[in-house]
Simulated scan of single mutants.
Amino acid sequence: MPALRRGVAICNEGQVPRFFTRPQCRIAVSPGGGTEWLRPQAAGRMVDTITASLRTRIQDLTIVDVYKVRVDDTSATKITAANFERDTLKRPPYYQAGTAGGEPSHFAVCPACDNPIQIIGLYKKLAHTPNPYGRHHSRSVANLAEYDQDSYDFCPYSNPDREPDRTARRTRAEGLPEKILSLLIENFDSVIYMIEQSIGIKIGDALAKRMLLSYRDEQGHMYKAATLLNIPWIFAYMANAKSIARQRVFNNPELLINLSSALPNAAIDQEGKQEGVLKPANDKDYLDVNVSFIHHRIVQTGSTINETMKMIVFTHRGKQVITIHEQLIPFATDHFLALINVPLERAYRPRQGTLVPLARQILQP
């Protein structure tokens, strides 16, 4: 590009506009083609317009297949006409009349980021998909949900097919991060249960405490890819490597076999090759066996968002790290939401009385 004192430089279509400054020049980068001489103020207005336009276009391309009807809800319901009518009773602000004879609009809340979404194709057959779907709405919807750009930018439904930056943190604790932290604390026994079911390793109170300390130190609720749906798995992902000596392995026979093969100094009291406690053969000895959770990924398949992370169980031979077991862990978000919404009288397992107070002690300000 030739040197410009003031101008508009053009990037490939679909890239996000940005300003950058060079000595004696101010250049706005935008989609399109060619260059145009502009005053700095006019260039600034153009960038704002292009940014808003691109944001709308990107939101049009991202599909949400679930909804909730209130920001305070902890639920995610499949978008269908029958479900939406049942949950909203066709009331405002969910149903809104069109203006000047235009088509009516339908709104709900994104279960992951608490932003408003517009339901598309609820009663009108769509050319590109047989099912209605939601897309993020770039403005607040009165009496329903306030639009928050930061939460939208890192919602899994707005930016799928990526491996988030583990070091990225939000700049404001208000709003979604506060809600994530509150849900984690008050449902910490359910969080631990979901992790156990996902990885096949029981988490005792001492290990849970070490994980809480890691989450606190890492400010896990501020992680930009943390949402209301993935709380248990992001809690585990935020932990540094932890020893799992003296923890019970269950419903993970492959892990148990790998542990038995790799740890000859361990006495694993196997029960039908389904369960076993990891402990040293001599109870006074140290057993080196650890777990780490890495590679949080978000992938979109059709209208469905799938999140995963990788579990690595390892030991050491001198200074060398020896991988014992590697396993992809899918995030069972539907199961988690169902679990924390079960009334106490219908719960099939008792609440664990020690875990929630432990989370309050460590994570509450």
Rank of each mutant, 00 (worst) to 15 (best):
Q219K: 14
P116C: 04
G200K: 03
A359Q: 02
T308F: 15
I63A: 00
D189R: 02
S303Y: 01
A142G: 00
L228C: 08
I50V: 14
I322Y: 12
Q197C: 11
A52D: 14
W233Q: 08
K179N: 06
P2K: 12
D285A: 14
I312Y: 07
R86V: 03
H316V: 01
N159T: 10
A245Y: 00
E275A: 10
K319N: 15
A359C: 09
L122E: 07
A206T: 13
E345C: 05
P330T: 06
K284I: 12
L229G: 08
V313A: 01
Q59A: 15
A267H: 07
R91Q: 15
A52L: 09
I244R: 08
A142V: 07
T171F: 07
F314I: 03
S303I: 07
R55H: 13
G34M: 07
L4G: 00
T99S: 07
T62Y: 09
R349N: 00
K242W: 04
R170W: 02
V8Q: 07
G121K: 02
V191L: 02
R351E: 05
L181H: 01
E307N: 10
N83Y: 05
P130S: 07
R139W: 09
E13T: 07
G34D: 04
N258T: 07
R162S: 08
A112P: 08
E146A: 12
D114E: 15
Y193R: 13
N282Y: 03
R55T: 12
N258L: 11
A173V: 11
E186Y: 14
Y193I: 04
R297I: 10
G7Q: 08
M309A: 14
H296I: 07
E163W: 03
I63K: 06
V141S: 06
N131W: 11
M211P: 05
P104Y: 03
I362A: 04
M222V: 03
K125N: 00
Y215F: 15
F19M: 13
K284F: 15
F107N: 04
V71H: 01
V16K: 05
L358A: 04
H316Q: 09
Q300E: 14
N159V: 03
I324T: 05
C155R: 04
K179R: 15
G272N: 13
L259Y: 02
E218D: 13
P130L: 07
Y286Q: 12
P17M: 11
T227C: 09
A239C: 08
P156H: 14
H325Y: 15
L287R: 00
R135W: 06
R216Y: 10
P232K: 03
L287G: 01
A43N: 06
M46V: 05
D153M: 12
Y286C: 04
I195M: 10
H295T: 08
R45N: 05
